[in-house]
Amino acid sequence: MPHPAPAVFAALLLAASAAGAGEIAPADRRSGFDQMGAETRAIQRDDTANPGMLAVADGAELWARPPAAGAPACADCHGADGTGLRGVAARYPAWDARSDRPIDLQDRIRQCRRDRQGAVPPAYESPDLLALTAFVALQSRGEPIRPPADPRLDRGRAEGRALFAGRMGQLGLSCAICHDDNWGRRLGAAAIPQGHPTGYPLYRLEWQGLGSLQRRLRNCMTGMRAEPFAYGSPEFVALELYLAARAAPLPVETPAVRP
């Protein structure tokens, strides 16, 4: 037994860092859908009852209609029914070579509106942007979330991970404290989910409407009494990059319904 101590120490360190990180292994990842009551699950499952499908229908209309006279409609390039975009939402955010940064699905749609369709990009959380994003994401429903293995995304993903683990706000909490370390418990009336963005844009009963992942993140930040990041900020895209990697391979549920 020359020097057993360093090996033991290393093993302890590994165990400690694994426990401290608290990341959820792929096989243990669960959608918030599984923690909802039977009634809310039934609303999401039934397309004729799911209020998010109204936005999808609006999105289908916008998809087919040119945003301005003489400008192409989405359908003119991507196909009439949108099925050509199957799988796209499952791999966003992705690297955008034109702007040299990661971009999420709603910003891709805004960029297309502006650069290729000669239109004013729809505002964040506007009915038009939510509807188009929901329509595009619906095409990936059931597809496993599959973040691209693009090394240019590594930096944003690492930034997102740091934001997820960092304490913020007057209450000094972090995303990880609830969603890695305490999911399944109750924060007041709310069952804490693992926090996987599987169904955005989604219909929240609390909102009585459709909203984006960024709106949800802003809600949580306000709950921690932190200053929320701005819509479309690089911080949110970084968080979205990390959250997608953290959620894989759960399937896309858009348009999900949540309490």
Binding site: R167, M168, G169, Q170, G172, D181, M221, T222, R225
Partner: peptide, 24 residues
């Protein structure tokens, strides 16, 4: 600890405008 520090302003980040510079 995950318990908020109810009477401290130290080590806090990105405190929202409405709650800045005062303890909980």
């Amino acid at each position: 600890t995950i318990m908020p520090s109810y009477y401290s302003l130290e080590g806090l980040a990105r405190v929202g405008r409405a709650w800045r510079d005062r303890p909980i």
